[in-house]
């Protein structure tokens, strides 16, 4: 029985990692940039939800929508002013810029909200659900459900819509996509908007489960999600989800059955092993350079 619960705990953490990992992986897939500011967009998302709840007194779902819109705009803004001017620069330049944006967001948050952690209000209350002998908390269930629904929607969007097709085209060959009449700038902006919007949802769900918000919550969370994206094969949407669930479940099982201090070590060990065997990640494809 314990084992089932630990797996559910893993799915809970994993689904939050997945929502955030999607942002890393989509952006990487389309502009080959590791957007280190992504973790801090989550943090901003959490603060926006927190403020909407405590200052505007709106219901939780409206607060999430406000945060999604805010973060989507923030994501596009970051892309427009920080990354777009560097699109043709060497790979390292936008990477350093991303770290700069990350620090900028953290410091702005510290200035505006102060470094003191703020409690996140209780939005999902009520007794845990019973499934036979297994008892699962409401936050856990809602988080897993919302994440899965969003992931399915994203998958449909990428596979079935015109914009999704444009994204895939740009990711495959930006030059050829331009020749086919695809507006690269719009496509990239939309990708950043979707990634940041998902990060906002991730931030909201994270804060519901771990109800203390401070300007640093994004850094470790972002790092874990980034590892998930790399583990699953960066650039692959299904890879990010798979990687995130593997990491979440590994963490919880290590904490539950081995030692809580080792959970991060085990996660990193798995990452190293996978990358040794399959450098492009579990679902990644090794693309050979054409000469």
């Amino acid at each position: 029985m314990d084992f089932v619960l630990q797996i559910i705990n893993g799915l809970h953490v994993g689904s939050i990692y997945a929502l955030i990992a999607l942002g890393y992986t989509m952006v990487y897939g389309i502009v080959k940039l590791i957007n280190f500011a992504h973790g801090d967009v989550i943090m901003i998302g959490s603060y926006v939800v927190l403020l909407s709840l405590t200052e505007l007194h709106v219901p939780f779902w409206i607060a999430i929508i406000v945060a999604v819109v805010f973060c989507a705009l923030l994501g596009m803004l970051i892309e427009r002013f920080a990354y777009k001017p560097l699109r043709n620069a060497s790979r390292i330049t936008p990477l350093i810029t991303a770290i700069g944006v990350s620090l900028l967001l953290q410091n702005i948050a510290m200035k505006v909200f102060s470094a003191n952690p703020k409690p996140f209000p209780n939005v999902i209350s009520g007794e845990p659900f019973q499934f036979g002998g297994v008892q699962v908390g409401q936050v856990t269930i809602y988080t897993i459900l919302i994440s899965v629904v969003l992931m399915v929607l994203l998958e449909l969007f990428v596979l079935k819509t015109k914009m999704g097709k444009a994204m895939r085209a740009v990711s495959e060959d930006a030059g050829a996509a331009t020749l086919m009449g695809i507006n690269i700038n719009t496509t990239i902006a939309i990708t950043f908007a979707i990634g940041s919007g998902l990060a906002a949802v991730g931030g909201a769900l994270y804060s519901t489960a771990y109800p203390i918000v401070d300007p640093y919550i994004g850094s470790m969370l972002g790092l874990k999600a980034f590892i998930a994206a790399v583990l699953g094969g960066i650039g692959k949407i299904q890879g990010a989800m798979l990687g995130a669930f593997i990491i979440g479940i590994t963490e919880c099982l290590t904490k539950g059955y081995v030692s809580s201090q080792l959970s991060e070590a085990v996660v990193f060990a798995i990452l190293i092993l996978v990358l040794l065997v399959k450098p492009a990640g579990i679902l990644g494809q090794n693309i050979r350079e054409k000469v």
């Binding site: 314990d2 705990n9 809970h12 953490v13 771990y210 904490k255 539950g256 809580s260």
Partner: peptide
């Protein structure tokens, strides 16, 4: 036990 930066204690609490 848990680590200084941990936020998730559900595994330990489940146990």
């Amino acid at each position: 036990g848990y680590g200084a930066t941990d936020k998730d204690f559900k595994s330990q609490l489940t146990k």
